[in-house]
């Protein structure tokens, strides 16, 4: 097994754990943390494929993905703060303002 393949398998395991977290967590911050795990697994894949093919493109994509993920987390946590302030909870099951 090459080290690229090992990294891909590791990323797959990490992504699955992230899926489990997104599906089972009730706290919005917990869900965001699990999304972080999934994004991180994708980054490992990008770098591994960049290593497989040579050239800087894989790492460039990973850097773009990191910047986008950080932006997403900043926005998501701001939304969680707003939710916590207006609804007095960060539990996604109790946030049903838009449910008819």
């Amino acid at each position: 097994m090459s080290d690229v393949q090992a990294c891909l398998l590791l990323a797959a395991a990490m992504f699955s754990i992230g899926v489990y977290g997104v599906l089972t967590r009730r706290n919005a911050i917990g869900i965001l943390l699990a999304v972080e795990l999934m994004a991180n697994a994708v980054n490992i894949n990008l770098v591994a494929f960049g290593r497989l093919h040579g050239g800087p493109t894989g790492q460039i994509f990973a850097l773009f993905a990191i910047a986008l993920t950080v932006a997403e987390v900043a926005l998501g946590l701001a939304l969680v703060l707003l939710l916590a302030r207006t609804q007095r909870t960060a539990d996604v099951d109790e946030a049903r303002l838009l449910r008819g």
Binding site: I17, G18, G30
Partner: peptide, 8 residues
Amino acid sequence: LLGALGTV
């Protein structure tokens, strides 16, 4: 993997 499991 330990850290990921701990996270979720």
